[in-house]
């Protein structure tokens, strides 16, 4: 099976609500939140971060909103065995107890659509992550240069 199909199946499993009891959002640790600068507001932006589940039950990220954009979604970029890359909504993201999920270039990302103002290097904005227990976590995001390759620039 190719990676697109696998990703879709993973999304299906997550959406079907399989897995152990849901943990509280108070157990989530968000690290290395950053976004690439954009030129203007016409084109979408992307933000990245690492979600760590410090609790002892699975934690599920169900939604995201951004102060900088009219609409934010978790997307997944996939590259198949022929070298074709595309992206799609990732559905809910389950983070097992004691594990981390990285949103990083070329994989999971927060897609920022309808930017309210350009993301300028040195600025920041806030992401609000919603979890399956209804809890919300506010995450400050640093805007790095357009050619940034990771949270370190």
């Amino acid at each position: 099976m190719n990676r697109i199909a696998m990703a879709a199946l993973a999304a299906l499993t997550a959406a079907a609500g399989l897995g152990p009891a849901q943990a509280g959002s108070e157990d989530v640790v968000v690290e290395n939140a950053w976004a690439r600068a954009t030129i203007g507001t016409a084109r979408p932006g992307a933000a990245y971060l690492t979600l760590r589940n410090a609790g002892d039950a699975t934690l599920t990220l169900t939604g995201v909103a951004a102060s900088a954009a009219a609409r934010a979604e978790i997307h997944r970029s996939v590259t198949d065995e022929k070298g074709v890359s595309s992206m799609m909504p990732a559905g809910e993201i389950a983070v097992g107890p004691g594990t981390s999920v990285a949103l990083e270039p070329g994989g999971l990302h927060v897609m920022l659509m309808g930017l309210r103002s350009p993301l300028d290097e040195g600025d920041g904005f806030e992401l609000t992550l919603t979890f399956s227990d209804g809890g919300e976590v506010a995450v400050p995001v640093a805007v790095l240069g357009i050619a940034a390759r990771g949270p370190g620039g």
Binding site: I4, L9, A11, L12, E92
Partner: peptide, 17 residues
């Protein structure tokens, strides 16, 4: 709705493949 979305993703994956 989540399930419908998930199944349409599977469909999309099959098409893309």
């Amino acid at each position: 709705m989540a399930r419908t979305i998930a199944w349409s993703l599977v469909g999309l994956a099959v098409l893309a493949f």
